[in-house]
């Protein structure tokens, strides 16, 4: 099939090629029929509103509407405003680092959790742990911040009281530039470890048991089976998740940061989205928000394309 494509596009369609195309397309009509409702959804609800990206190149005015609003002068005005703003490089760096830490330190625990649950033989124990670790996902960041305060607060936090009781100084986890990013990453891991494991557990349940059977006959240890059967069995999900997350590398988690940060940690915690939010609060500056969004999306797009190309070499590409 792959060889057909260049033929079809570069040479004139010979009757036989055209016929074969038509035949294949004809044979595939049930598939297209299945795709139809979903594709219609994507076209109507995702692609149709996409004309809105031009707001980034206009001085959008609520009254005039998108079409009638004047073009920005110069066209990159809003991008430049972002680029020249006081904290631009710091915002970019913070966003990138927080996001990167979340990917690097945040994805592995999900897999480890799933692997361990998979190795757990006592059904009741497995289910209890699974449910308990899944529950924090449903707490909103406001509540999690409340919990974080109860444990990590410099004055009232339980952890700090324990630290003080052994004669050490209280650690300002929530207001120190040394600790804050760790708190962000840690609280996210805590929130989503059980939730993140679900997808891997689903992938594991699709692994053919015959593989384990064969390995057991060969005398493989459980650790070896984990490495050589389970892990490869979930690799496709991992790669997919990784690629998708790379696309959102400049989304470092607005709500979490917005709720948890404070003046003291701005230098390490202020991210693009919190800046856009604070700046947008003051003026009806939709064009700026659109420009920043577009910038983030472009970076994400290149990363996704690059990562997919790389993954394809190992036969794991998304498309």
């Amino acid at each position: 099939m792959a060889q057909n494509l260049p033929n079809a596009s570069t040479t004139r369609h010979s009757p036989s090629v055209r016929r074969r195309w038509r035949k294949e397309l004809g044979a595939q009509w049930p598939w297209y029929l299945m795709l139809l409702p979903g594709l219609a959804f994507f076209i109507v609800f995702k692609y149709f509103p996409m004309y809105g990206v031009i707001i980034a190149f206009k001085d959008y005015d609520l009254l005039e509407g998108i079409a009638a609003s004047p073009w920005a002068d110069p066209w990159y005005k809003h991008f430049e405003y972002f680029y020249r703003s006081t904290y631009f490089s710091q915002l970019l760096m913070n966003t990138f680092l927080i996001s990167l830490y979340k990917i690097v330190f945040g994805m592995a625990p999900d897999i480890v959790m799933a692997l361990l649950l998979n190795e757990c033989r006592k059904a009741w124990f497995k289910r209890s742990v699974q449910t308990l670790t899944y529950m924090p996902h449903f707490l909103s960041w406001v509540i999690i911040y409340g919990i974080a305060l109860a444990f990590l607060s410099e004055t009232t936090g339980i952890l700090n009281r324990m630290i003080q009781s052994i004669g050490l100084d209280a650690v300002p986890f929530l207001s120190s530039t040394d600790w804050f990013r760790s708190v962000l990453v840690g609280s996210e891991i805590w929130k989503d470890i059980g939730w993140g494991a679900i997808i891997y557990l689903a992938a594991m349940s699709a692994i053919d048991p015959a593989l384990y059977e064969a390995a057991r006959v060969d005398g493989a240890s459980r650790f070896r089976m984990m490495r050589h059967i389970t892990l490869p069995g979930i690799a496709h999900v991992f790669v997919l998740l990784l690629i998708l997350r790379l696309g959102h590398i400049l989304d470092a988690g607005f709500e979490q940061v917005y709720i948890m940060y404070n003046i003291r940690v701005y230098p390490v915690a202020d991210i693009i989205d919190t800046w856009v939010y604070r700046t947008g609060l003051e003026r009806l500056n939709f064009s700026l928000a659109a420009a920043v969004g577009l910038f983030k999306s472009f970076i994400g797009l290149w990363l996704v394309l690059g990562a997919n190309a790389l993954a394809k070499r190992w036969g794991q590409g998304v498309w």
């Binding site: 703003s85 904290y87 701005y266 604070r278 003051e282």
Partner: peptide
Amino acid sequence: TQLEGVNYADRDRFIEEEFL
């Protein structure tokens, strides 16, 4: 009223940080 051309979000952050 606010002045055109000033990013008040950046200004506020700058002031808070210096106060601190």
